[in-house]
């Protein structure tokens, strides 16, 4: 009868330490996780795989995107509810950062900080990132929010119980609680327009064509060319949300 070795034996300690060290060394040779382009690769083999691109160098902060979005999608007009909005970032010469978004940019922006104090300022239009592996879908307790095969994150307003968990889970603040319907509402990438062969309302009406959406599977689409030719970046890549909203000329200060 052999004596059973206890887990605290010297032999076991060296064995486990060896396994741990070996795993660490092996893991260090793996390729680094590419958070920015992670979601852009072919994820839908049957049809389109939608992504969004916004060119900050073209955005003039007119707020037409935010205004048209509210009308197209019957979003309440009160200034707390947005599916799409514009922020103005201002970095002052003293290093402080100021972010404003009066009524989501719908009424336009007036520069409140004197020009001589400004180091740099720019507009950042924001909307749902339509993440692959989106955190909002993962937390929904009833299956009321989901990602379609095309990579569009939708909310089933008949099935949503209004627990607002997804609002907290979204790191980009892209969801709001509808004051009349008492369910969560968000950007659908104008699913009803895409299915009719139209572009999303915010993109059709953008005067400088600063925002585009399209099929990431198609190498000839405008968005694929945008990603290939520009220095694209996503918001909060460290969260690994699989964001499919690609910005050109995005400053690291933008959160």
């Amino acid at each position: 009868m052999t004596e059973k070795k206890t887990s605290l034996s010297r032999r076991n300690f060296f064995k486990n330490a060896g396994i741990a060290a070996g795993t660490l060394v092996a893991a260090s040779t793996l390729p680094a996780f590419d958070a920015v382009l992670f979601a852009a690769v072919k994820r839908n083999t049957k049809g389109p795989w939608y992504g969004i691109a916004i060119d900050i160098e073209k955005c003039i902060g007119c707020g037409t995107c935010a205004k048209t979005c509210k009308i197209e999608n019957n979003v309440p007009q009160e200034p707390f509810f947005f599916r799409s909005w514009v922020e103005q970032y201002t970095i002052k010469k003293d290093g402080t950062l100021k972010v404003v978004s009066p009524n989501g940019g719908i009424d336009g922006f007036t520069q409140s900080i004197p020009a001589e104090e400004i180091e740099k300022t720019f507009f950042v239009p924001k909307m749902c990132n339509h993440c692959y592996k989106s955190p909002c879908i993962q937390v929904c307790p009833v299956g009321a929010t989901y990602e379609t095969d095309e990579g569009i994150v939708l909310v089933d307003e008949k099935y949503c119980i209004g627990c607002k968990y997804c609002i907290q889970a979204c790191p980009y603040g892209c969801r709001y609680f509808h004051p009349d319907k008492h369910v969560v509402d968000k950007c659908t990438l104008c699913f009803h327009r895409i299915k009719k062969g139209l572009n999303p309302a915010c993109m059709d009406n953008c005067p400088t064509k600063a925002r585009i959406s399209g099929d990431l599977n198609d190498p000839q689409s405008a968005i694929s060319k945008f990603i290939r030719t520009k220095n694209v970046y996503v918001l909060k890549p460290h969260l690994n949300t699989g964001s499919k909203l690609y910005y050109n000329a995005l400053n690291q200060e933008v959160r």
Binding site: I71, E72, Y146, K158, H192
Partner: peptide
């Protein structure tokens, strides 16, 4: 449980058609 729940995944499959049927306001 609604009939179309689980048709494509853990959600109500019919809701996609309902959203797709919403009216267009900006006609281009």
């Amino acid at each position: 449980t609604p009939d179309s729940f689980g048709q494509y995944g853990h959600y109500r499959g019919n809701s996609m058609a309902e959203i797709a049927a919403l009216p267009v306001h900006y006609t281009g």
